[in-house]
Structure formats: structure tokens, C-alpha cells
């Protein structure tokens, strides 16, 4: 199985996990944190394997850092509501 196909399978699993959390009836931090973590992981996989940043680890770390900051801000705002 190629790297891209493994990435696709992982994205499907992560998407199914997001849907399972949303359908679980959980609320508050128990919903917000895992759903945003899964979104961040999906973004990381797309950047690494679909967009090819696996060959540029420093750039991948930079994007990951920016996305982590964005996700944490999303989480803070979502939990403050």
C-alpha cells in the first residue's frame, strides 16, 4: 500500500472518529477537545502526505505549530461559550 493510500485510509478513520464523537451526545470539553484534535491530525496528514511536506520536515513542523495555535484558539473560544 502506497504512502498516499495509507494517508487516505487514516483520514477515513479520523473522519469516522470525529463523526462518532459528534454522535455520542457528549458536550463541552469532552466533545470540543477530541474533535479539534482529530481535525488537527487530519490537517497534518493532508500536509504531510497529500501535499508532500514529508520531504520538508522543518516546513511541516512550522505548519503544525501554526495549526496547533489555531486549534487551541478555536478550543478556547468554543469552551468559553
Amino acid at each position: 500500500m502506497s504512502r498516499v493510500t495509507k494517508a487516505w485510509a487514516l483520514l477515513i478513520v479520523l473522519s469516522a472518529a470525529s463523526t462518532a464523537f459528534a454522535a455520542s451526545g457528549l458536550g463541552g470539553a469532552a466533545l470540543v477537545l477530541p474533535v479539534l484534535l482529530l481535525a488537527g491530525l487530519k490537517a497534518h496528514v493532508i500536509l504531510r502526505d497529500y501535499l508532500g511536506l514529508a520531504v520538508a520536515p522543518a516546513w511541516l513542523r512550522g505548519f503544525d505549530l501554526g495549526l496547533a495555535f489555531l486549534m487551541l484558539t478555536f478550543a478556547g473560544l468554543a469552551l468559553a461559550a
Binding site: V32, V35, A43, I46, F74
Partner: peptide, 14 residues
């Protein structure tokens, strides 16, 4: 694709 995986949870799930 990347934008959608960020947009979807915020608009539809949280």
C-alpha cells in the same frame, strides 16, 4: 480539502 477539515468541525460539530 485542508480548509474543509478545519471548517467542518467548527461550523457543524462544536
Amino acid at each position: 480539502d485542508l480548509v474543509w477539515v478545519l471548517l467542518f468541525p467548527v461550523v457543524y460539530l462544536l
